[in-house]
Design a protein around this nucleic acid. Structure first.
Lengths: 228, 228
DNA sequence: GTCTATAAGCGGATAGAC
DNA sequence: GTCTATCCGCTTATAGAC
């Protein structure tokens, strides 16, 4: 992917749009691994196969590049988070799909999850405004749906905010903490069945806690289109 | 704390030991907030009130300073993690104390949690050996205890590894994600009762999932010495 | 759009006087 | 142990030729 000593640039050649996307993708990978301060523009540029000066032609500053990356990350993140509102009348199915979706995000976009985690751990110095404007409302909508279920007697009245926090944390852990989890599971990298095991446990726990008539048997269905 | 324009150094003056501790504490705070790459030695030195050159007299390199910080973080982290083995015959009480301990860690040592999280997210480039040597065995001991309970019929046979991952993730979230959680809860900072609400939900979920004879009522005891 | 050149400063780290 | 002085590579960013 970067062995050609000839003229570096090979693959993207195409449009300006494509080159910008390549830069954003490389930057995301590096920001995920080393954090904002651990990445240099030179590093990103070399990864893509352009000069640093050229990169600065497309993105006027490092912070702007980071901002663009974060913006894209948030788009992806939110796109996996709207399941709760799709099944507004069926708590069990809605929660199953929500959990499956969040785990799918961790599996399909681990770097997005890590970039987001890095920013939040740092106290969201750059992106707190956008998080407050885009993430929090989405979450509060989910909490509201959950509270409505409780009011309608469709589920037990647990604290929806803390439940959501628990769901985020325990699903995104499979992206953010992958290096440690693979040590625990004693395999070089996480596999599909590890995500399935996580989903199975988490769904089980949530449904046992939240449903009125708890499913006596372990609820191991819903593997069809949710998690692969 | 750093307004005196006179000679900076005021508080630590004491022993070499004390100065090293001050440096480590300041470095921990900064690494937690900005990651390894986002911190400069100058930055740390100014925070403590010594010169960069003097700091390098005590710690021969930035990486060595980081290593020392991480080592201390791991000490603290592990000291909060041994609850499971203390009540090897009583799953319910052991799990209650384990969860309470982990949440106490997040509340009392949020920066330790963040430094650790930063390192793990980055793939643990520097500390994977020490994590493998110190954290994983501790965790596997916990999993073993859990599996023994299941074998003895003291609890249901859920996957202990994924359960532990869930417990870590959802407890440490209250340190690592504090900035976002406080946005969700609409308060400037997390308070004791937020940790109690988290503990209550998490204990409830785990016990409902794990115990054979699930406690019908929400198990809201064990607030005494575990969480304050 | 891409290149060469270069500014201007910060980064970690060392040498040696006191 | 602490300070002054300094090395040197890397950093972000800009100017201007092609």
């Amino acid at each position: 992917m970067k062995k050609a000593a000839e003229s570096t640039r090979v693959k993207h050649s195409a449009t300006r749009e494509q080159l910008e996307q390549d830069i954003l993708a490389a930057a995301k990978r590096l920001f995920a691994k080393r954090g904002f301060g651990g990445v240099s523009l030179d590093h990103v540029a070399r990864e893509v196969g352009v000069s640093k000066q050229n990169l600065l032609y497309y993105f006027p500053s490092k912070e702007e590049l980071y901002r663009r990356v974060l913006h894209g990350v948030l788009d992806v993140w939110l796109s996996y988070m709207d399941a709760l509102s799709h099944r507004a009348d069926d708590p069990e199915q809605a929660l199953r799909e929500y959990i499956a979706g969040k785990l799918r995000f961790s599996r399909e976009h681990p770097d997005d999850s890590r970039v987001y985690a890095n920013e939040v751990i740092s106290g969201a110095p750059i992106f707190s405004a956008e998080i407050a404007a885009r993430v929090i409302p989405a979450l509060q909508a989910d909490v509201a749906i959950f509270n409505r279920w409780a009011r309608l007697g469709l589920c037990r009245p647990v604290d929806g905010r803390h439940l959501m926090i628990l769901l985020w944390a325990s699903t995104q852990a499979y992206a953010d903490w992958a290096s440690q989890i693979s040590l625990v599971l004693e395999k070089p990298a996480l596999e599909v069945q590890d995500f399935e095991a996580a989903e199975s446990l988490l769904v089980d726990m949530v449904l046992r806690t939240v449903l009125i008539a708890a499913p006596a048997a372990a609820p191991a269905q819903s593997r069809r289109r949710s998690s692969r």
